[in-house]
Design a protein around this nucleic acid. Structure first.
Length: 575
DNA sequence: GCCGTTTTCGGCCCGACTGTTTTCAGTCG
């Protein structure tokens, strides 16, 4: 039975193929919208399709036709329309559209007029100067395509948010020194806190826009000026990342910030709403006819549309407008709400700092409690603890606690879930811990049923408190396990166990959609740093950002509570 | 292909920049 992600992927493929065939743009958009909606659903489509009391067409953007296609997919695993489209368009041709500078129109022309079927053929045609002969193409287009091909072959994936954050800080500091700069903000997916960032958008108000553009051109990391007009400039950095700079009038700064923060989908809804009210919204402001109504600040723009201010992380058009209509906009969790950190390592295994150093660092960061969760023995590379060593560490923690005021160190362990199933340490050891996080580190490639079974059995162990990094994905590096999260939610709920949102910027799982799904099931989330050093404790903010994108509030996150209160939520023996 | 107290048909968000064009199409965000 296909997952939501698989169904969404199929609809995206259909959209790509239709677009290539020059189909009605709104029809293409309908498939893209549906794919997006499905990606963001917090419950499996297969379940809704199978439920006689529910209708797929109740889902926004799913009409009679798409509902039928979803049913086909759920029941047969395939969809005739996709098969037909694939027969009409060679798969390799779709790669053409992904080349920067090529859209569906130009790609289709290249395929039709020159018989180009692959990126290699495209490169050869450009080298042979055959492309410039086509109507609507020229020498410059040819060069653009070649540059796009080079970029595609060298450029990496989208950058981690944490990496983008460093670049933003550097560019921002550099631009801020330019005389005449007034307001300066980074917008786009960076501002929305997405786990990865494709490019950066800076907005600036300044007495002399040209001076700011000159300044950006001289920034150390810039290797190419992609384009420059009166109000917009694009450059490429050494890393391959594109940086856009837009100079906007002060009275439009809020409108521009709103506009370029997006998301695109959020903005589409806003524009429709403006239209409904006889207004027009663009990056310059809100207008009634030619009359300027609002635009200096984002708050002003939203107010003009009779909406509350949405935190950027919420602007994905996946529920925020409904929340606003019901007057129930969640107050998103903030870093300062967290009082504990329930996953970290010490020099006893693969950490870089001692128990005492981690405690001092946590105290310095204002936390009230931490759990020391070193690896268990199976993780031999990290010198994982056997029962005896774990108990020795816990005695050490007991002695330390006796000396600490207003701070508690929890006796914890990150206990491996073994490949064959079962826990890496016996129950009589685990029962002595205050907090046990169970992790999959080995056998990550097992089939869905097997790995799901391992995780579910771990949740049913009475001494396990939470599942750490529940999908195991490393962004841009490693795919998630094939785990069936819906089963995990069901068991976690029944057993009153927690799920971790791992704050490491490479991990960040559960991701935003999965976190929202866990919330819907009423499962407490713990945001944990998985720190292997003192500095790693500062990674908590990445986890908080992901939690905010999931719409989590202080109440939804367990480690905003004092330890004694958190314990009462937990189905395990709890120390 | 979706959607609807102005509509079951005719809409569907908007603007900057570039290149190939003498008035605009394509791409991008």
């Amino acid at each position: 039975m296909p997952t939501n992600a698989e169904i969404a992927d199929i609809f995206d493929q259909v959209a790509d193929l239709l677009e290539f065939q020059n189909a009605n743009a709104f029809r293409v958009r309908a498939y893209r919208n549906a794919a997006r909606t499905i990606t963001n659903l917090t419950e499996p489509l297969a379940g809704i399709a199978a439920d006689a009391n529910r209708k797929l067409t109740d889902i926004d953007g799913i009409g009679a036709d798409l509902a039928t296609k979803i049913k086909q997919l759920v029941e047969t695993g395939s969809m005739p329309m996709l098969t037909e489209l694939q027969a009409q368009v060679p798969a390799s041709v779709l790669a053409l559209v992904r080349v920067a500078g090529l859209g569906p129109k130009k790609a289709a022309a290249l395929h039709k007029e020159l018989g180009i079927n692959s990126l290699d053929e495209l490169r050869q045609a450009c080298v042979d100067q055959k492309v410039r002969a086509l109507k609507g193409f020229g020498a410059k287009t040819e060069a653009t395509i070649l540059a796009g091909l080079d970029l595609a072959s060298t450029s990496q994936d989208r950058m981690l948010w944490a990496e983008a954050d460093e670049i933003v800080a550097a560019v921002r500091a550099y631009l801020a020194e330019c005389p005449g700069v007034e307001q300066l903000e980074a917008a786009g997916s960076y501002r929305r806190g997405k786990e990865t960032v494709g490019d950066l958008d800076f907005l600036v108000t300044a007495t002399d826009g040209n001076a700011v553009m000159d300044r950006l051109a001289s920034f150390g990391g810039v290797t190419q000026i992609i384009g420059r007009g009166d109000t917009k400039m694009s450059v490429r950095l050494r890393t391959g990342m594109q940086v856009d700079l837009r100079v906007v009038p002060a009275e439009s700064f809020g409108a521009a910030l709103q506009y370029f923060t997006g998301s695109k989908e959020h903005n589409v809804v806003l524009r429709g709403r403006a239209k409904d009210r006889g207004l027009k919204l663009n990056e310059y402001g809100v207008f009634r006819g030619d009359e300027f109504i609002a635009g200096r600040t984002e708050e002003e723009v939203y107010r003009a549309l009779e909406l509350p201010y949405f935190p950027p992380e919420m602007r994905e058009s996946r529920g925020e407008f409904d929340w606003a209509a019901q007057g129930e906009l969640p107050r998103l969790i903030e870093l300062g709400d967290l009082v504990g950190d329930l996953h970290m390592h010490t020099t006893e295994t693969d950490g870089k700092a001692s128990l005492e150093e981690m405690v001092a660092a946590a105290q310095a960061r204002g936390l009230r409690y931490i759990a020391i969760t070193d690896h268990s023995q199976r993780v031999s590379m990290a010198n994982g603890l056997n029962g005896e060593r774990a108990r020795r560490q816990w005695e050490q923690i007991d002695r330390l606690n006796a000396k600490l005021k207003d701070f508690r160190v929890l006796k914890g362990i990150e206990c491996d879930i073994l490949e064959k199933g079962g826990m890496d340490l016996p129950d009589d050891v685990l029962r002595e811990a205050d907090w046990v996080v169970a992790s999959v580190h080995y056998g990550q490639n097992q089939p869905r049923e097997q790995i799901t079974r391992r995780i579910i059995d771990a949740l049913r162990n009475p001494y396990v408190s939470a599942i750490a990094h529940p999908t195991g994905r490393l962004i841009n590096r490693r795919k998630a396990y094939e785990v069936d999260l819906d089963e995990v939610y069901a068991v976690a709920k029944a057993e009153r166990k927690f799920l971790e949102l791992n704050a490491n910027p490479w991990r960040l799982d559960l991701d935003d959609v999965a976190c929202a799904a866990a919330k819907r099931h009423g499962i407490p989330i713990v945001i944990s740093t998985d720190a292997h050093s003192v500095r790693d404790l500062d990674k908590m903010r990445y986890g908080v950002l992901q939690a905010r994108r999931a719409g989590l509030t202080k109440k939804d996150v367990a480690n905003t509570r004092p330890w004694d209160e958190l314990r009462t939520l937990l189905g395990s023996h709890g120390g």
